[in-house]
């Protein structure tokens, strides 16, 4: 929506759907997906090249107008995440960085402590830091204080497509954070994305659900519509259930004879 931009780290986004480049069957579909979804920010990862194989450059499939969000995947400590972030910036990826520090290989849960430490360092170095975290309010406030440009709580484990399992905790972040809240990971269907936006999330980041759909281009478009619908509903301030008061005034009726009250 044109009049409702999202600002992160001084950059304005008119699309609140962030996407990722992982798991595409054919990376050439990424450009089409971006065009169809209107997504203006996409994640990439940094890896050692395979010296035997042929290297291809994922950046070839991303239009220059789309903001790159390199992630620190592979990092197991804050120090490793910091190193990857610096490399990504030196490589010309811009100031954005998604901090993703994962020590648990079973559920791929982010390590909130290492993530906070990396955020502190990188924010000081001028990065636009988007930490990927478990939705924990005191942590989110610390990330804010450390200079995070947004917080990215997970809805469900990475790639699980299970939706907003952490919704009540994310709601606390939305209610209390000054920086944008971007729901990352777990969003498996457009309706999940719409629900996150209805709740008041500032954006959602969707990778697996788009990349692994049979038609990732059409799915990108579907997510974009869902995000827009959810955002519109949030802004339109859904009518909430209202309790009708009883005709009598048991609590405030005394005000009609207030002179008698000493």
């Amino acid at each position: 929506m044109e009049n409702d931009p999202l600002t992160i780290g001084g950059h304005e986004f008119t699309s609140r759907l962030f996407t990722g480049t992982g798991k595409f069957a054919d990376d050439r579909r990424i450009a089409d997906m971006l065009a169809a979804s209107g997504s203006q920010l996409i994640t990439v990862a940094l890896r050692r090249i395979d010296l035997g194989g042929k290297s291809h450059n994922i950046l070839d499939f991303i239009p220059k107008t789309v903001t790159l969000l390199p992630n620190t995947s592979g990092a197991r400590t804050a120090a490793e995440a910091v190193r990857i972030a610096r490399i990504a910036r030196e490589a010309g990826c811009g100031p954005f960085i998604k901090i993703e520090v994962i020590t648990d290989t079973k559920y791929l849960m982010p390590d909130n402590y290492e993530t906070l430490a990396a955020t502190e360092t990188l924010a000081r170095e001028g990065f636009v830091v988007l930490p990927y975290v478990l939705p924990d309010l005191p942590l989110a406030k610390r990330l804010e204080d450390a200079g995070a440009a947004a917080v990215m709580p997970l809805g469900a484990p990475i790639g699980s497509n299970r939706g907003l399992e952490t919704a009540p905790l994310i709601a606390l972040l939305i209610e209390n954070c000054r920086v944008p809240v971007v729901v990352d990971a777990g969003i498996g269907r457009p309706s999940h994305a719409a629900a996150a936006m209805e709740m008041g999330a500032d954006a959602v980041l969707v990778n697996t659900a788009i990349a692994t759909a049979e038609d990732p281009v059409a799915m990108g478009r579907a997510f974009s519509l869902a995000v827009e619908a959810g955002r519109m509903a949030y802004l339109a301030k859904m009518a909430e259930e209202s309790r009708t008061a009883r005709a009598s005034s048991p609590l405030t009726g005394f005000l009609d004879r207030i002179e008698d009250i000493v």
Partner: peptide
């Protein structure tokens, strides 16, 4: 030497 490149990732 570390030789790195950007790859797909979420």
């Amino acid at each position: 030497l570390e030789l790195l490149s950007f790859v797909g990732g979420g």
